[in-house]
Amino acid sequence: MIRTEHLCKSYCHHSHYEVRAVYDININISQGSFVVFSGPSGSGKTTLLNIMGTLDRPTAGKVFMYGEEITSFSDIALARLRHKKIGFIFQNFHLIPRLASWENVSYPLIPLGISLKERLERARLLLEKMGLADRLDHAPEELSGGQQQRVAIARALINNPEIIIADEPTSNIDDETSVQIREFLNELKTRGVTILVATHDAMFEKVADVVFKIKNGRIE
């Protein structure tokens, strides 16, 4: 369902040297699979996930999603695709400051014309599942790292996406909660959701269908 061809991304640093964040990635991910990308820090996991999730554009190569070459899509088309299919959990959460958790979680629902009452209800359900029932009205600044991460996970799920892209979803969470999150993602998988996870957490490799080991921007 997601396929990459010779995917490359390099960053120019002050135009005299170049960082190859990912290089010549060719992978094929089928629908409903649980895919884990693991590798040391700086190996290019985030970069790869961002590109596959349409948040960033590659320097070279192609990404196909549902058989269509999305690298040639316009920004507007990509935004539409994201909105319909993809939920993101970012490595550094990217919550909107000074907005209550439930508002952060239900933010993607605003342009869909969903009423305040329903937004609150849907956000509450997800946050309760994340064990944050008593933190609905707290802004990100008032939450611990792990709590913020769980808010971010709830936000990724609010649109019932077909693809979930999770960048280090358990990096700030204690073992108990990370077990819960793994199980939660696994449960989503059984419902047919495709899951892409970047992580250092070896436990993920046990639930994964496929594990890609990344090193220096290449798959080993």
Partner: peptide, 19 residues
Amino acid sequence: SERKKEIGIMKATGWQTLE
């Protein structure tokens, strides 16, 4: 810059440019 970040987050979580 805060605004830009916010817009980036909105775009990443499914907002359309026009919205």
